[in-house]
Amino acid sequence: MTMILSVAVVAALGLGLGWLLGLASQWLGATIDPVVERLTEALPGSQCGQCGYPGCGQAAIALSKGEAPVTLCPPGGRVVAEKLAEILGTTFDPGNLPDRGPLLARVRTDSCIGCSRCIKSCPTDAILGATKQLHVVLEEACIGCGACAEVCPTGGIDLEGIPVTLRNWRWHKPGVGHA
């Protein structure tokens, strides 16, 4: 008798609490939009910030709200843009997708006055230098976001493609033609 009552008490308590939690989740449940989840999966997930959002998660939220174009992701390029458009059920114009490859910031040595503003604006600490000293961009850390070029008072920072060297030269992809 005690055994059956014990089981009944625990079962009733469990069911009751479960029911209350179910009710609470309808009220409070943080609904993760399935579209946002799929968009986040489609994005590269490297959190590089070249789209202008802090990370891929925030970019996915902006995409789902229609605040950002599907072509926002430079590293993802055309393939990711197509995937994003498919998830969102929209089409995109591949013509306006600048296929310029990854960019790097570069300090022009004759324009740099050593004001160190670009150092403070860099999200990845990729610029090295001190006040009244020539600054230099660390290529390994630069994500090509262009924040430094915006704040530079002399316009002395260029965004350039990565120069082709013997180390990174590759055959062109078949069917794409010469980029």
Partner: peptide, 27 residues
């Protein structure tokens, strides 16, 4: 007269409240 179930039921209640708190914080 089910005092022997004390720890079991207490943990059950605590787990439910924690779950509720987690939902509230996530929101």
């Amino acid at each position: 007269d089910m005092m022997h179930l004390r720890i079991l039921t207490y943990i059950l209640v605590i787990a439910a409240v924690v779950q509720f708190t987690e939902m509230a914080i996530q929101k």
